[in-house]
Design a protein around this nucleic acid. Structure first.
Length: 215
DNA sequence: AATTTTCTTTCCCTTACCTCA
DNA sequence: ACTGAGGTAAGGGAAAGAAAA
C-alpha cells in the first residue's frame, strides 16, 4: 500500500462519512423544504438578478416585490420568500409557474443561464479583513457587514462559507504534504531496518567461533 | 404537556460561470 | 477563435433547532 492508497482511503473515508448522510431515510423528512427550494430555484434560474443580487456594481439594489410579480405570471401556488437587505426583512411572494406549455417554454428560454456576481475589490478586502478577525459570523455581524458592503446577508454567508472551505482545503493540502514526507521517512527507516535484520540473520547462520574446551 | 409538522438557519459538497494563459 | 484550468459565487441536500399546529 503506497502513500496514494493511504491518502485515497482517507479521502474515501471522509467522503463516505458525508455521503452516508445522504440516506434515503431522510428523503421524506421534509417535503416542504424541497418545495421551497424548488420554487426558489425556479425563480433564481429564471431571474438571476432577482435573488442572486447585483450582476454589476451599478445594479446593486434590492429587488422589489412588484418587479417579481410583474415578471412571473400564471400562478398555481404562492410561496413567501424572506431575505434580509440593509437590515430589513423583505418578504417576497414568489409565484410558482404552472406546468402549462407557455410557462415551460418561457422557463426553458430563460433557465439556461446563471449569472454570476463578481465582488468588487473593496468588498473582497473588507470581507477578508473580517475573516481574519473571525472566521464565522453571528447574525448581527452578518447583518452589519451586509449593510456596510451593500450586499445581501446570504451573499455574506456564502462568502464566509466558501472562504472557510478554501482555508480547510489549504490546510488539507499542507497536511497531505506532511504525511507524504512522513511516509517517505518511514519507508526509508523501514528499508534500513530490513537491511539490518538481514545482516543479523546472516551472522546467525554463519559458523560460530570454535567453542573453548574446558578440561 | 407531549407530539408532530413546518419553517429557518447553517454547514458542506457540487455545479457552473468567468477569466486568463 | 478555441480550449482547458483554476478561482469562486451560488445551488442544493441534509441536519438541527425553533415555532406553530
Amino acid at each position: 500500500m503506497g502513500f496514494n492508497d493511504i491518502a485515497n482511503t482517507g479521502l474515501q473515508f471522509g467522503l463516505g462519512l458525508s455521503l452516508g448522510l445522504h440516506d434515503h431515510q431522510h428523503k421524506q423528512r421534509d417535503q416542504s423544504h424541497k418545495k421551497r427550494k424548488d420554487v426558489s430555484s425556479k425563480c433564481n434560474k429564471a431571474y438571476p438578478s432577482l435573488t442572486l443580487g447585483p450582476s454589476d456594481e451599478a445594479n446593486n439594489q434590492p429587488n422589489s416585490k412588484t418587479e417579481i410579480s410583474s415578471l412571473v405570471s400564471n400562478s398555481s401556488s404562492i410561496k413567501r420568500e424572506r431575505d434580509n437587505f440593509l437590515g430589513q426583512n423583505f418578504e417576497v411572494e414568489v409565484e410558482k409557474v404552472t406546468s402549462n406549455s407557455k410557462g415551460e417554454d418561457f422557463e426553458d428560454e430563460v433557465c439556461n443561464t446563471r449569472k454570476k456576481l463578481r465582488l468588487t475589490k473593496e468588498q473582497s478586502t473588507v470581507l477578508e479583513e473580517n475573516f481574519i478577525e473571525h472566521s464565522t459570523l453571528n447574525p448581527k455581524q452578518k447583518q452589519e457587514l451586509a449593510m456596510k458592503l451593500n450586499l445581501r446577508t446570504r451573499q455574506i454567508e456564502v462568502w464566509f462559507q466558501n472562504r472557510r472551505a478554501r482555508t480547510k482545503l489549504k490546510q488539507t493540502e499542507t497536511d497531505c504534504e506532511l504525511l507524504k514526507k512522513y511516509y517517505e521517512t518511514l519507508t526509508e527507516e523501514n528499508k534500513r531496518l530490513q537491511r539490518e535484520l538481514q545482516e543479523l540473520k546472516s551472522m546467525e547462520t554463519s559458523p560460530k567461533p570454535f567453542p573453548m574446551q574446558i578440561p
